[in-house]
Write a protein that binds this DNA or RNA. Structure first.
Length: 225
DNA sequence: GGCCAGGACACCA
DNA sequence: TGGTGTCATGGC
């Protein structure tokens, strides 16, 4: 593939972030109105486009169910029908309920109770919940609890493979270490950097042309364009 | 009509 | 430990 477009150093990553920031502006992420909505959205977006998740969140909001105690009172079968648009709805309804039970058991149903935990302790606890894996746990830790854990998702793999810094098939934890060993533990930075990666990821490996100011350079290894 | 999208888990060799 | 099947809707 040739020389990587960005050096795999702290300076290289920070320079890339600055370029993304200038190109896109601050992302203002996560796309959720409350920390609780972030948690539910993190589960619903598993292997699913955000537009489908928005419909499901909208259905819950319309019924005024976007709070832990109200949503926990909803039978799983009814919850599944309401989140149908997000796909895998039977599985995800069980997972949302498992998270709600966890939240009730550990923090009395209060999302802000999670902020009192250290990031790794909270992550470890979340990973014990059925249906919450690494990416979902890290999204909750970063975007709902505000602790600095770098989130790795399909966009992260796609963008950094394109940049020549990753193969894209490395284990999740290895990719997370790649970022966290090079960037200061700053939740605001991790938050916005990941959001920028997602915005960029939506634009690459797609048929539509990139604009001249696109921060990525060189051909896409997947499509050759 | 096929492919893809911000995963996670069970099962098997 | 790694590979594979399963879960499912909606947009293009």
């Amino acid at each position: 593939m040739g020389k990587a477009a960005v050096p795999a150093t702290r300076a290289g990553l920070e320079k890339l972030y600055d370029r993304l920031l200038r190109h896109f502006g601050h992302a203002g992420w996560w796309p959720g109105e409350t920390a609780f909505e972030v948690c539910v959205g993190a589960i619903l977006t598993q292997n699913t486009s955000w537009t489908n998740v928005e419909k499901a969140l909208g259905a819950l909001r319309q019924r005024d169910l976007l709070s832990a105690p109200k949503l926990r009172a909803v039978p799983v079968s009814r919850l599944a029908r309401m989140i149908r648009s997000s796909g895998y709805f039977n599985v995800k309804a069980r997972r949302v309920r498992a998270f709600l039970d966890f939240l009730h058991r550990e923090y009395g149903g209060r999302v802000d109770g999670m902020t009192g935990e250290g990031p790794w302790e909270l992550r470890a606890k979340l990973l014990t919940v059925d249906g919450i894996g690494r990416e979902t746990a890290d999204s909750i830790v970063l975007y709902a609890a505000g602790h600095p854990l770098f989130v790795v998702d399909a966009y992260t793999r796609r963008v950094f493979a394109r940049l020549g810094l990753l193969n894209g098939d490395e284990p999740y934890d290895a990719i997370q270490r790649f970022f966290m060993e090079r960037l200061p533990p700053n939740a605001q930075l991790y938050n916005d950097f990941h959001a920028q990666i997602v915005r960029l990821g939506k634009d690459i490996c797609r048929p539509r042309p990139r604009c001249d100011a696109c921060p990525l350079q060189g051909p896409c290894p997947k499509r050759g364009v």
